[in-house]
Design a protein around this nucleic acid. Structure first.
Lengths: 181, 181
DNA sequence: CATATAAAATAACAAGTGTTACAAAACATG
DNA sequence: CATGTTTTGTAACACTTGTTATTTTATATG
């Protein structure tokens, strides 16, 4: 009785998300999304109320993407903090635009902690492990480490920090050691 | 023999810099600058080849502004590192847009180190003091502290870190202590 | 004072934006 | 197969951007 849908909401979100990943959120425009989806701008505005709703969807995908990235990142380090640090810095290096969208946003959406709380239940439990292992004030310890990791990652994103995984590993281990005492 | 210039290059730069300070670089447009300068867009394009040249000038002013800010910031702390940290975090809190322009830029201009080298000759000399005071590898120490400070400042800019000066002071002292051992 | 000349204002152009009105096309059901 | 309904494409509107052509304005010098 009616025409078959050929450009789905998912397809549009896929295209827009890839564009955000490659060029950043501010370069997403209706016509450019349409071009990359090989269609006119019409299917976009059928699936979304407006460009804001589309970029909101892209943002949500970025959150999920990071959480998957972190969940699947190999845990090769000695402590959960170092694992978190290695993954976070690697994300900043490999996904600069997404890192900016998520962790240095111009318009605040979710806070760092909201994003991480979807990913770091394991980390939180590991904080308790650290506490059980004799560390007093594990919350303060986590804050310090997190600030350090965030600094290294932000500098990685901008190119002001460019160490190898091996060097980063050593740095994180050193710093964690320093903070534990 | 000719009309007197009433809108100078300096006036335009002043206006554009204040706009960058309040709303960020990406909101600087020819017409908005003209409006705040109470003139048409014509004097802008007489003084500058194009908007890029104007924003370059704004960036240079931002660099100088930070360097002045840092030079004049009171030195109340026990170590030069803590002084640097307090000033840097305060700048991130009080000048969020300028901090973003300078230290989390989308298009890289000057690196962190280039900007600081205009401000931190004192810091560099203090590193040598630290070395003389018995610290081995003062360069590595400075890097760790700088990463930490940068993390705290970036989180301050985005609102993910919001501690009082007193709490920040304690945190910096703790962390410096940790790194020194 | 008249005038030449530089500066500023006006107004336009071309390009790009979000968004929407309308026409064309495709397809499931009668 | 015809038809009605939904999706898609086309084309436009209103707006904003950088930039420039042209006109108006002010002023230092003759």
């Amino acid at each position: 009785m009616a025409r078959k849908e050929s450009i789905t909401k998912q397809m549009i979100l896929d295209v827009a998300f890839m564009m955000a990943r490659e060029e950043g959120m501010q370069n997403i425009t209706a016509r450019r999304v349409a071009e990359r989806a090989n269609c006119s701008t019409q299917p976009i505005f059928r699936s979304f109320q407006g460009m804001d709703e589309l970029t909101d969807g892209v943002y949500d995908r970025a959150v999920a993407f990071f959480q998957d990235y972190y969940r699947l990142y190999p845990r090769l380090e000695k402590t959960p903090f170092c694992n978190l640090g290695m993954a976070y810095v690697a994300f900043a290096r490999e996904e600069k635009e997404l890192f900016r969208i998520l962790f240095v946003p111009e318009k605040p959406r979710k806070s760092l902690y909201e994003i991480l709380n979807g990913s770091t239940e394991n980390v939180k439990s590991e904080i308790q492990k650290a506490a059980a292992a004799g560390c007093q004030d594990p919350g303060g310890l986590f804050m310090k480490i997190w600030i350090f990791i965030h600094g290294a990652a932000c500098m990685t994103m901008t190119g002001d920090y460019d160490l190898s995984d091996q060097e980063t590993r050593k740095l994180l281990n050193d710093v964690c050691q320093s903070f534990m005492n």
